[in-house]
Design a protein around this nucleic acid. Sequence first.
DNA 1: CGCCTTTTGTAACAACGTGCAACAACAGGG
DNA 2: CCCTGTTGTTGCACGTTGTTACAAAAGGCG
Lengths: 240, 240
Amino acid sequence: MLDTITLKSPSDAAVMLRPNGLSTAQMFATGCPHQPGLRKVAANETLWCEGEQREHIFIVRSGTVCFSRMLPDGRRIVLGFAYPGDIIGIGSDFHCCDAQTLQVTRLEAIPAAAFKRAVNDDPVLGKRAAAAVNQALDAAYHHVVVISKLSASERLASFLMGLSVRNEKHGLSPLSVLLPMRRIDIADYLGLTIETVSRTFTMFKNAGWIALDQANIVIFTDIQKLRALASGECEEAHRP
Amino acid sequence: MLDTITLKSPSDAAVMLRPNGLSTAQMFATGCPHQPGLRKVAANETLWCEGEQREHIFIVRSGTVCFSRMLPDGRRIVLGFAYPGDIIGIGSDFHCCDAQTLQVTRLEAIPAAAFKRAVNDDPVLGKRAAAAVNQALDAAYHHVVVISKLSASERLASFLMGLSVRNEKHGLSPLSVLLPMRRIDIADYLGLTIETVSRTFTMFKNAGWIALDQANIVIFTDIQKLRALASGECEEAHRP
DNA sequence: CGCCTTTTGTAACAACGTGCAACAACAGGG
DNA sequence: CCCTGTTGTTGCACGTTGTTACAAAAGGCG
């Protein structure tokens, strides 16, 4: 008798373990035929699992996607987030992490084979794809630095300043950010517990560096201090 | 008057900060003309610095290379190591980390321009280069997992098992490894202090899981236990 | 060989972050 | 309306790790 314990192939196991029980192909079998490739996905849906074969490359049009890995005992590590404008799913032929939506998310899906052909035909697109992978590698190295050497407050400041910089790049104000993810996602991203994240938010608020509106909207009231914290320049910061 | 403080360009700054004061071009201006590209580099030499423009792609023939980043206050983070057979220096046009030799190291240097041309001409080589970048990304994600969720003993076990697996792949015994790096490099790689690394080595030795020969040769006397620790399967492991 | 420097090992103490608990705020549904 | 589940916050005790200090071992060099 077949059960999940006996499965050996990572991609089989990944499909079996999907929270919604659907493969990517099944999930995207239905959709609006007038706008081929454009899909609307509900919140908390799994786009793909670690070990699965890549079927689509996606362009995020709205919403947020969260990339994570799981340890055998269930501990979760968030590797990053994707926001509107990001191209996600490029890289090797097999996904190296899970991907889940955090909100209702609109995605433009490009079949992997079509994307591969397009890259081969168009050297400019190829360079852009390569640049995206390099950017991901750079971000991963930055992530390692943040997690291995920064204190809890430095980590949270680094995270918030990353969102601030992103806002600025997209023509929005860098002085406030909207958090589409929950505290647990931030904690798993920064290598902390949810309690520490919550406590650090409160500390920032009490110190007068941020103001919180309904826990998901952060207004920076002393962005200089936060920037200094984020880059690890503060002498008085207590590090792990 | 010009001093290092006033420098703004990252690549200029990087060159100024090189320990040996030489640029990559200068370092590789001399060499054996009979074996074009093959270079012998002393231990503790800087191959390149973060932010510098890529000038060469290297193939490691012998020795060990250490990749690291520095925080403004001098804290160092080791991002990885390269061993014989590894191709290093591929990725974007600018280096995203420092690279230093840990031992006397023989390198085959391929000028970046020549490598670029070869990649454009040969799609197979292009795929191999892309695969190498993807592999680096996968390793970086694994690194994030190790650093953010594993305890000190789990991290050290993970590091040692990584070397063991590498030995096995290269036809050597997986039951012992030689550490070409110092304790401080291991500590900076695992996000720990040198004292914790030392304590954990002693703990492994007292627990009967390893035997140490002159601090640089590790013999695994209970590799099952170490493997379980490394993958984060041990219930009794106390985590950060 | 002896001296020096560098690296590594060990110990005590302090501290940051965790784990567990209770509690508050909020939304959804019957 | 109350009930329920989820999420976020806070208090307190504890533990792993960092810090500091010093000793021991290894390697370089005259």
